[in-house]
């Protein structure tokens, strides 16, 4: 048998082996039992589950910085997300409550970004002579690392005698500066 034909035979044998392995792997993975176990394992059994969650965080100086309450907190490992029901989050300034955010639902991801949804109310308590400011919307993304809040949904802000409706918001919570992005209408009562 010439050298050339022997090479051809070897290549053919190699191809056949690769094909066989591929088929075997596909068959193994696609068997319902194995697939079912994998997906079932991540969805139905969370990493941890807490009812009536109450968590506090302190600064290096030992002064309270934030407090969080939730009727339920469920953490899933596969996406590193925690879903919270009826959350109430409070941030403190020099030990006194400064802002609270409540909603029907929320999620917290691994980057500590909180998405609050459904009947979101953010309240800021008066500093100096200003009056309480309340912001209501249907979804609010709070980045606790950069201390910003954003939404593209309609928002309503009430403060003193003023009420402002707009669509879309960006707020820098450190600088205490907020921008309303479009469709602004304010009414100041006499």
């Amino acid at each position: 048998m010439s050298r050339r034909s022997r090479q051809v035979q070897q290549q053919l044998a190699l191809v056949a082996t690769v094909v066989a392995i591929t088929i075997a792997t596909f068959y193994l993975l696609s068997s319902r039992k194995v697939q079912e176990l994998t997906t079932a394992d991540t969805i139905t059994s969370p990493e941890w589950y807490i009812s009536k969650a109450d968590f506090l965080s302190y600064g290096p100086d030992g002064i309270i910085r934030s407090k969080g309450l939730a009727s339920e907190a469920i953490h899933h490992d596969y996406n590193q997300q925690t879903t919270i029901e009826s959350p109430k989050l409070t941030s403190f300034l020099l030990g006194t409550p400064y802002r609270t955010a409540v909603a029907q639902h929320g999620t917290i991801n691994s980057k500590k970004v909180i998405l609050l949804t459904k009947d979101v109310v953010l309240t800021q308590f008066p500093s100096k002579q200003d009056r309480v400011l309340t912001l209501t919307t249907q979804s609010l993304l709070i980045d606790t690392k950069n201390n910003t809040a954003d939404t593209s949904a309609p928002v309503t802000i009430r403060q003193g005698s003023g009420k402002t409706d707009a669509i879309g918001l960006h707020a820098d919570l450190d600088l205490n500066f907020l921008s309303l992005l479009s469709g602004v209408h304010t009414v100041y009562a006499p």
Binding site: L175, F177, S179, G183, V184
Partner: peptide
């Protein structure tokens, strides 16, 4: 009378 204000955008400095 109430004051009505309409605009494209708004910026508010709380400080």
């Amino acid at each position: 009378q109430p004051i009505h204000i309409y605009s494209d955008r708004l910026e508010r400095d709380e400080k």
